[in-house]
Design a protein around this nucleic acid. Structure first.
Length: 550
RNA sequence: GGCCCCGUGGUCAAGCGGUUAAGACAUCGCCCUUUCACGGCGGAGACAUGGGUUCGAUUCCCGUCGGGGUCACCA
């Protein structure tokens, strides 16, 4: 009895690994092409850090005319979530991260290197596991969970390294014929790697982001096939990324400590390992301590959050690129109109330590992005958002599209566009006072400023309506008239005049226009008042002014 | 605890033995301006710490401190 018999006892009918090696030939790609992937578990939830990795991976593949694929890592059935795959695909799509290969919905996929869902690749893993057993590099382990726990306790008590290795790896030394017998007798088992590593020695690993790191070799006999027949992450990673021709593995740096194991796996499999780029996580500060953005505690950890509050996906992508390569900012300054697909990501410029997530900065970027939009784009995007999250806003906007477009177009499209919308959820509060149906019928709270004497207000506004306001005036005339009005009531026509000799005046033209602004909108801060009056139209303007002095 | 990574203003970050230590966001002041937003100008604000190496260290080495990651039949 030898390893071959053992292998056959465990996997009586699997294909030879040669079969798979031929089925998935080396990819025919130009020199230097990067093949990479995003490989999430199908929980439906995409973490901002995951999107970050996927964004980088997507761009790297694109830049080198390589391939970016989506692989679903569903080897842990406990974590399965219904429609988890679609959730991920949709989330990626929202941010314009489109895989070249991989799952396209819960069942379908594109690409020649599939299946792209690990649970469908069981036989493949079995073939490779069998090959390892034949070579004496893997073995069945019959240890029960309790035995493992007990072992750990002993190790902890003795203050030595925990785990299944060396003398602790009891099943490693079970004779082949005994193992076969126990398997035939129906005893439960899993498969472990017979690690050839020596922790006294260190491997030198050159990470694309972190640079040189020396880590002790792995000597843990980790499990490669679980009792449900599915592989562990580590084994699946090695087999899949070999077969799928992955050249670069881009993943979170929590994986860095398993690099020795992974390298060893590729080594025992006798295949070339990919290059690794370990990305620092996106962190959050809480109570003075840094920690990873948490799925449970931080709503902003989920990419869906940004859609919910209405931050445009370009803004999120820009922010992510900004964290990835700090020269992005400079590039954006030089190419304000360019599409972000034109920006080239350099992996070696990525930060080695985790950045704190900065919502303020994101919103600043978002304001910039939105300020470049036309009124039509703002309308369209806001409508998209509102129809999901704010029906009142949707109704308000679509009731009179032309009017809404005019409202959204105020101080937009010029050289210095307004920069006051960071997210679609800001829009409503920004413009609601422009809508008569929302404005009237509600008690307005006029917070008068310098001019707050009721009688004086009444007089001034009435005078403005009767004598000065004309909806056909051009901006210059319109403002001249406000100056005249100011003058008539003892307010300086020019602010400068007033500042030179404040004793001669009750105030200046600014006080008058502020008064009109408040009476018109019930707000003291608004965009350009001339434009507002134009958009509102005569009827509404007069009605509003009258309402204020009622 | 073992192993690994990291440590430049509040935040993100340039820097790679000699710099007045960039820039962006935030903050403050001034200017522009009928308010706000925009824009312009300016201010404050940093190399965690102790030892080396060196003519010279933010840059290189070691220790300390601090932060993070990882030690599963989860990924």
């Amino acid at each position: 009895m030898d390893y071959k018999d053992l292998a056959n006892a465990i996997f009586p009918n699997t294909k030879e690994i040669e079969y798979y090696k031929e089925k998935y030939p080396k990819r025919d790609l130009p020199e230097g092409a990067i093949v990479t992937r995003f490989a999430p578990s199908p929980t439906g939830f995409v973490h901002i850090g995951g999107l970050y990795q996927a964004t980088i991976a997507r761009k790297l593949a694109e830049q080198t005319k390589g391939v970016f694929f989506l692989r679903i890592e569903d080897t842990d059935q406990k974590r399965e979530v219904e429609n988890g795959i679609v959730g991920i695909i949709e989330a990626l799509k929202d941010f314009n991260v489109i895989p070249d290969e991989g799952m396209t919905d819960e069942e379908h996929e594109i690409g020649e290197y599939g299946p792209y869902k690990q649970s469908l690749r069981k036989e493949i893993y079995h073939s490779f596991a069998k090959d390892l057993i034949e070579k004496g590099m893997a073995y069945p382990c019959f240890c029960k969970q309790e035995q493992l726990d007990e072992m750990r306790e002993k190790q902890e008590a003795a203050k030595i390294r925990t785990g299944y290795y060396g003398v602790w790896a009891k099943c490693r030394h079970i004779p082949v014929n005994e193992a076969i017998e126990r398997i035939k007798a129906g005893e439960e088992y899993i498969l472990r790697l017979k690690s050839p590593g020596n922790p006294e020695k260190k491997i030198k690993h050159k990470d694309l982001i972190k640079g040189n790191i020396d880590i002790p070799e792995n000597d843990q006999d980790i499990v490669i096939i679980k009792s449900d027949g599915l592989p562990t992450y580590h084994f699946a990673h090695a087999v899949d990324d070999y077969l799928m021709g992955t050249t670069h593995v881009i993943r979170g740096d929590e994986w860095i400590s398993s690099v020795p194991l992974h390298l060893q796996l590729f080594q025992v499999l006798g295949v070339k390992a990919p290059k690794y780029a370990h990305i620092a996580p996106i962190m959050k500060e809480e109570d003075g301590a840094k920690r990873k953005l948490s799925k449970r505690k931080d709503p902003e950890a989920a990419v869906s959050y940004y859609a919910e509050v209405g931050i445009p996906h370009e803004a999120v992508s820009e922010y992510l690129l900004n964290i990835a390569n700090s020269n992005f900012e400079q590039w954006r300054k030089q190419n304000p109109e360019a599409d972000i697909s034109e920006f080239e990501v350099q992996i070696n410029k990525m930060s080695v330590s985790g950045a704190l997530f900065d919502m303020v900065k994101l919103q600043d970027i978002s304001k910039r992005v939105i300020s470049r939009y036309t009124a039509e784009q703002v309308y369209e995007e806001t409508m998209k958002w509102a129809s999901k999250y704010d029906l009142e806003l949707k109704e308000m906007l679509e009731k009179d599209t032309k009017f809404s477009l005019k409202v959204l177009g105020i101080e937009r499209g010029n050289v210095k566009p307004r920069r006051d919308i960071a997210k679609w959820s800001d829009v409503k509060d920004n413009i609601i006072y422009m809508y008569d149906e929302k404005y009237f019928g509600k008690k307005q709270n006029y917070e008068f400023q310098k001019i707050n004497d009721k009688e004086e207000i009444k007089e001034i506004i009435q005078k403005y309506i009767d004598k000065y306001y004309n909806e056909n005036d051009d901006k210059e005339t319109w403002f001249e008239k406000i100056k005249d009005l100011a003058n008539e009531y003892g307010y300086a026509r020019e602010v400068k005049e007033y500042k030179q000799s404040p004793d001669n005046y009750k105030g200046h033209v600014g006080d008058i226009s502020t008064l009109i602004r408040i009476c018109l909108t019930s707000r003291s801060n608004t965009p350009d008042m001339y434009e507002i009056m134009k958009v509102l139209g005569k009827e509404s303007v007069i009605k509003r002014l009258n309402e204020a002095i009622k």
